[in-house]
Amino acid sequence: MLLQTVNLIKKFDHRVVLGRVNINLWDGEILSLIGPSGSGKTTLLKCIAGLEPVSGGNILVREKDVTGQKANQRPVVMMFQQPLLFPHLTVMENIIYGLKIRGTEKKTMMAAGEEMLQKIELPGYTRRYPFELSGGQQQRVALARALIMKPQILLLDEPFASLDPELRSSIRNWVRRLLKREEVAAIFVTHDREEAMIMGDRLAVMIRGRILQEGSPFEVYKKPANRDVAELFSDGLVLDDRRFVPVDAITVSDSEQQVNKDGFLAFKGRVAANWIKAGHHMIRVEVPELGREVSLPASKTYSVAEEVLLVFPRDRVYIFPQNNLEMEME
């Protein structure tokens, strides 16, 4: 195993930000870490990178305890939300910054730098200054600056958050390919479901400073461990703390007929919004009885405020393996 955190605890004053976090990372793997804002994702990365001291627990790299090591001694490099290129250094000087600190010989350094510029598809930008680059180009240079260190572990903290949506989707495929080609193991933090699925070989869900579920993205999507994970990562209707209906089991109906059939459940709802996504009509339905909303595809157009029925077979109701209450007590 490449990286392992063992019961990692982080407190700010007396507020627990990370509560006994255990995550694993294998060689060459990309782990997506998804969670809502303020769930402790960035703090976890900073602890692993050595930028924040931990309040308890251990961090192991290849079974070796690095908890006491400073950031600059760890074989871990972190990349941030913003590119944070040094504004007074050229693109090349930014890229080889870490090698220079390490004392690499100048020739080797420049060659590695040029090679990196090729890889990030910015050849000829050697002498440019960061302000001359677009946001996406800057973030690519920041990635090069991290990759050139050949870190055993790369930590990416929502690196595309500052980019506009279109650029985001093209750059993330590109980054994934680059990481795979370089065979770098990475933890990729995001709060975007799609991004987490695309980027990660494996997925971990973090909420309120705890890892609630780990697994392949599709597994987590289809079998959320509890209500919180379902609400964050799956599409469907959460019935209560124990039960959930995936969106593909629900049909939208405007008559009462189906309801009376055996083995079906139905909830009344009101259309709150409608739009088209990827060629499908979508509606968002409020379900007053549950106090929840759900987005789902519709076979025809509905107008806002129209009353509808959400119908699903009883045997498609999914029961969470974990109970949220038990989690909180732990």
Partner: peptide
């Protein structure tokens, strides 16, 4: 999540 530029740790 926006991380504000904070005072470096003591």
């Amino acid at each position: 999540m926006f991380v504000s530029p904070a005072r470096p740790e003591q």
